[in-house]
Design a protein around this nucleic acid. Structure first.
Lengths: 223, 223
DNA sequence: CTCCGACAATTGCAGCAGCATTACCCGATC
DNA sequence: GATCGGGTAATGCTGCTGCAATTGTCGGAG
């Protein structure tokens, strides 16, 4: 197992090198982002440990850089102190996990194991369909970079359809995506949402159309 | 997006339900492990939030239980206080992430997003025959990636035949596949469906043919 | 080979289930 | 109290689907 450590504190790097070495992990260490990019081109790493504060810039900028090369190597971001929001930023940029310093080597190992056993991360940060970009995790939609104002339920319907673009989505699946058990519906509420959603998509020129499959469900296609 | 929350603190559960609800997440909540197992059998969740201390036992026991059913639904363990070793135990039992209480909803959301970014689970089982791909779960058929518009009954007939490709399917078997007990038919409705189905299959160039076995039933073959 | 009966294929038609749309109103939120 | 989201219900419409009449096909008996 080979890991890339991007970290400017020499002592921490040395300590990790020893500690992880005992677990049979080989560490390549660099202190500079610039070198990190090159190293990832030349080697295949099983995971990357990334510090945020680095001499030549903010560590997080490395994440999109790496992802753009098509790599899906797991990244664990190391953040200073126990700052939740720092961790949030890393995760939302495409990191797979985030850990505040100081940390137990035990926990780092456990997080490494967790991250390594999951199938390669294919970032579904956005769904692009027609002229729209849907971010289902942040519940936002833009058409040609201008935000589209949808209500929460409309957005849930849209996201559920867009995830299965060009494929049928069962009516029951849509209902489950929008409603939980407590909020059972007894009317055509879903139909109403579809209708309103269609209207807005047309107004916005979203470049998609929602088709109905009678007796089955719905389907979203580009037009 | 649908999530199962296994947690015995009512207040936390209620708060999360509201907070995540605003992010468009539907929460099913239970306080007992026993119920959790049943719920996961009946529903497909995008993720599971699991508390460790539960009235009917240690939450972590749920993880192997779930995994044994073949499910790979992401699990995030919520641990009491900020105890690194508690988090380690959860991760090593197969959880995907672990978060100490108390936590910011923001961080939980970010970790959810990170965990959900993984490729869509469950390889859908499909029937491939001729140039067609039939997805009986979603009631859809595609010919060379372009969706084929069949009515519900036509689709049921097709799926029943395709499942037993190259083998005769009794007329009575087909009827059972398309109609339930309440809806008995007294005419050649089935024949009519076969006829219309054949027409559509030819039009679409599906690469299959439905043959009749006189007095017995039908049979689907590639051509 | 021919004829005949039984079974199968096809198609128009009518009824109706399911869908689309709109207006309305309640409740939550600010 | 103004505004927005969203559930409900009424209305009109579409096209699926069961039915039946007609035509076509198979296979055995003579």
């Amino acid at each position: 197992m080979r890991i890339l450590l991007i970290e400017d504190e020499r002592e921490l790097a040395a300590a990790l090198s020893v500690a992880l070495g005992k677990h049979g992990i080989v560490i390549d260490h660099t202190m500079r982002l610039e070198d990190a990019v090159e190293l990832t081109c030349q080697n295949v790493y099983d995971a990357i440990l990334l510090d945020r504060r680095l001499p030549d810039g903010e560590g997080l900028t490395f994440i999109p850089q790496l992802r753009r090369t098509g790599s899906d190597t797991p990244i664990i971001v190391l953040t200073a102190r126990n700052e939740p929001m720092e961790r949030v930023e890393g995760l939302d940029l495409g990191a797979d996990d985030s850990l505040g310093k100081p940390f137990l080597v035990e926990e780092l190992m456990a997080r490494l194991r967790a991250v390594l056993r999951r199938p390669a991360t294919v970032a579904e940060l956005q769904i692009i369909v027609g002229r729209m970009v849907i971010d289902p995790l942040h519940l936002s939609v833009t058409v040609e970079a201008t935000p589209l104002n949808l209500s929460r339920r409309e957005l849930l319907v849209l996201a559920a359809l867009a995830r299965r673009k060009d494929k049928t989505v069962l009516r029951s699946t849509l209902e489950a995506a929008v409603y939980n058990y407590e909020e059972e519906i007894q009317s055509n509420a879903l139909d109403a949402h579809i209708s309103r959603l269609r209207k807005r998509l047309v107004e916005a020129g979203a470049g998609v159309a929602i088709h109905n499959i009678r007796g089955v469900g719905y389907l979203l296609r580009e037009e």
